[in-house]
Design a protein around this nucleic acid. Structure first.
Lengths: 246, 246
DNA sequence: AATCTGCTTTGATGCAGATCAAGAGGATTG
DNA sequence: CAATCCTCTTGATCTGCATCAAAGCAGATT
């Protein structure tokens, strides 16, 4: 990993204080973490780390969006995770990275050397507990995504992605924020295609299809308005009860 | 959940003693777990639990094979996990099940009431630590599977599945066991199809295709012989370095 | 304003895998 | 041993998405 050093920041005013691995820590424990943390920043488009890299740093995303991708030699690419603020990169007990990590917007990370972090993990159960909770949430999300990749049609995939982003717009942390019927896509057509297991052409065609059928409304190519959220949910093929998809 | 009570068993002679959630426990801790554990058995084909069910029991698979599935109303089904001996069912801190769990062979579970188990989790860090490790392994496996579902061809999918089973036959716990070139498929064509995001017809056709090309050799429809493991690996589209797939 | 460059849309065509349909074993049962 | 189920295979056809190709569009560069 490389990148510019960002200005040191106080944990108590940290935007991800209550959602990241440190969420359950008390003030004393926070001090311990604070001692070994350091920040790094990456510009949009920059590679943060590559599959196979030695992984002697773990980190939390403080700001920005990054992707986790698996790539086959011939270039086929599948996104396997979307990293938003508070998400964790790396895993204790493993020395090599399994995926390519790329910044899609400007990204700031709160980093820890892996070894000292692993020691803290043993000493501070609150971190381990939170990490388990986060891992299980991600596992559920990954499994929901498996259903999408394995069994949904292109139209359902696009609708599901829009629902996912809409839900995030609604409650990035539980509370409604902004207009739900108007969402801004944080990723390009290509990133969407790699996320959904489609080609960019198919993604584009499905957008026009949904627009022509009045399910969505496009304003430029990054702004989507949703006149009927129920209708979009119907198109997504989800029943709406359980699956949270991130 | 329901099922017959199996004969009580001693932890020290338990076949999954060193791989399950209890792997890191010392004898004293094992006694604590032993106090609250109980066994349940399910016949092949039986439903163990359904999506939405109240989940007041968590369990380890002691023997047999079970599947984790997500189903869309119209019947489309995607397997999201294959549960083999030592794998864990349920998650601490959540009251409802997210998937359908089905026994594909006769299954024996080592069960714990969720609430007491959650208490033990806090008191015995060894269990929490092991659970985190297992969750992260499953997350890696799920992400590898996302690449397969989103970007691999039918032939690559079948080859990948065979490699997965072959690797498991090789080292269910690290050591070689039995002949690698001869594997027995633990699941039906339909289960494979639901695992791989294909139809049974396509699964069948790919098997004949691989057979005709000399990559594999079929003996009945549950026994596969692999003359050239490297060749199969090549067909799977994996480079062989990182991805472990379970 | 003109050219470039990256992203997106649209069109034409091809093909992998789905669907529909019909056997072919192999096990169980009367 | 025929009859009934299953599961699996094979064949014929269809279709949704990929592929190949070209054009539109907006922001950056000069």
């Amino acid at each position: 990993m490389d990148g510019d050093l960002a200005a040191a920041q106080n944990c108590s005013s940290c935007p991800i204080r209550h959602r990241a691995v440190c969420a359950r820590c008390d003030d004393d424990e926070l001090v311990r973490l604070n001692e070994i943390k350091f920040y790094k920043s990456y510009a949009a488009g920059q590679t943060i780390a590559m599959r196979g890299d030695a992984l002697d740093v773990v980190a939390s995303v403080v700001a920005g969006t990054a992707t986790l991708e698996r790539v086959i030699e011939d270039g086929r690419t599948q996104m396997v995770g979307l990293l938003l603020p508070s998400d964790f990169i790396g895993r204790p007990g493993r020395g090599t990275l399994q995926y390519d990590v790329t910044a899609v917007s400007d990204v700031t990370l709160c980093c820890f050397q892996r070894k000292p972090f692993e020691s803290l993990l043993v000493e501070i159960p609150a971190v381990q507990q939170r990490l388990l909770e986060m891992a299980l949430d991600e596992l559920d999300a990954a499994r929901d995504w498996m259903l999408l990749l394995g069994r949904k049609t292109a139209r359902e995939k696009i609708a599901s992605l829009l629902m996912l982003i809409a839900k995030r717009t609604m409650h990035p942390d539980g509370k409604v924020m902004g207009d739900i019927t108007r969402i801004e896509l944080p990723i390009s057509r290509e990133t969407m295609a790699n996320f959904l297991g489609l080609t960019i052409e198919t993604v584009s065609r499905q957008f026009t299809g949904l627009r022509k059928d009045g399910v969505i409304d496009l304003d430029g190519n990054r702004i989507v308005r949703i006149p009927d959220l129920e209708g979009l949910l119907f198109e997504s093929g989800d029943d709406g009860d359980g699956g949270t998809l991130f």
